[in-house]
Design a protein around this nucleic acid. Structure first.
Lengths: 154, 154
DNA sequence: GTGCAATATTTGAATGTTCAACATCGTAGG
DNA sequence: CCTACGATGTTGAACATTCAAATATTGCAC
C-alpha cells in the first residue's frame, strides 16, 4: 500500500481504547483455550464446533454451514473436524443430496465430551467477563459487539 | 444440553453478548492479520513488536519486558523475535548488566518496515472499529476493556 | 447431452502458538 | 566460597491457522 497522503492517526484516547480492547481479546481467548485444554483436552475452536453441532437439527451440519456459523474459514473447519474425527467426537459422511458436500455428525462420545467440558468453560467465561461487568456495561458490550459484527459482515 | 447442578448457565442475553463479542474479537484479529500480511508481509504480532520497540528507550528492550508489555508468553516472544531477526528487522544481543538476559534492538530496516506498514494498519483499525462506533460507544468500550483488563491482571 | 464455470471441500506447505524440558546466570544462606 | 534455588531465555515437538492449489460435483448454457 502506498503511503496515504493523509492518514488520520489514532488519538491518544483512541489508542488507549484500542490497546486495551485488543489486549483483552487476546487474554480472554488465551485464558479460555488454556482452561479447556487443561481441563478437557480440547481447544476453544473444538468446543465451539461441538456446541454448534449439538444445537443443529439432527446433531449434524454441512461443513460449509458449520464454518459460516462459526466464522471459520473452510480450511480451518476442515482441519478442525478431521482432528476431532480422530478423537472420535465427530464423523464425516458424504451428503446424500449433494455429492460435493460432507456432513459432520456429533457422536455420542462427542456429546459426552461437550457435556463434561461445558460447566468449567461457562464458569471461566463468567469469571473472566460477566462477573466483572456491571449490568449496564454488559448491555453496552452487547450493543457494541453487534454494531461491529454487522459492520464487518458488510 | 444437560444441566449441571451447581453451574450457573449463561442467560439468553449473556449468551448473545458473549457470542457476538467473541466472534468480533476473532474477526477483527483475523482482518488485521490479513491486511498486514497482504500489504506488508508481517503478522499483527510482528507489527505490535515493532511498535513496542520503536517506542522503547533506545529502540531496544529486554525480551521479558517486551513480552510483558505485549502480553505474550516468553516462548512466543522468543520465536517471534527469532523470526524477525531473520527478516532483518531486529537484532538480539546479550544484556551487559545481566548475563541471562537478551535485548532486542530495532534495526533501521525494522523501523522502515514499521513506518511503511503503519498507515495501512491504522486505516484498517479505523475501518473495522472506530468508524463504526458512536463517541459514547467508544468511551464505553474503553471503560469495559479497562475493567476487564484490570480484573484479569488480578 | 456436452462443455464449462461455479460450488464444496480437502490437502500440503509455511508459519505461528503453546507446553514442557533445558541451559544459563544471579543471589541468598550456610 | 559454594551450593541451591529462582529468574531469564531458548529449543523442539505437537498442534493450529492460513493460503494456494487440487479434487470432485453440480448446474447451466447451448
Amino acid at each position: 500500500m502506498a503511503v496515504e497522503a493523509d492518514v488520520e492517526w489514532l488519538s491518544a484516547d483512541e489508542q488507549a481504547t484500542w490497546r486495551a480492547f485488543n489486549t483483552v481479546c487476546r487474554l480472554i481467548e488465551g485464558g479460555l483455550d488454556r482452561q479447556l485444554t487443561k481441563d478437557s483436552g480440547m481447544s476453544h475452536a473444538h468446543y465451539a464446533t461441538l456446541v454448534a453441532l449439538s444445537e443443529a437439527e439432527g446433531q449434524r451440519a454441512r461443513m460449509g454451514d458449520l464454518a459460516a456459523f462459526l466464522q471459520f474459514s473452510p480450511s480451518r473447519m476442515s482441519h478442525a473436524v478431521r482432528r476431532m474425527e480422530r478423537d472420535g467426537w465427530v464423523v464425516r459422511r458424504s451428503c446424500v443430496t449433494d455429492g460435493r458436500g460432507q456432513e459432520a455428525f456429533l457422536t455420542p462420545e462427542g456429546r459426552r465430551a461437550l457435556e463434561a467440558a461445558a460447566p468449567g468453560h461457562v464458569a471461566e467465561v463468567r469469571r473472566m467477563v460477566f462477573d466483572r461487568l456491571a449490568p449496564d456495561q454488559q448491555h453496552q458490550l452487547r450493543s457494541i459487539a453487534s454494531t461491529l459484527l454487522d459492520a464487518i459482515a458488510e
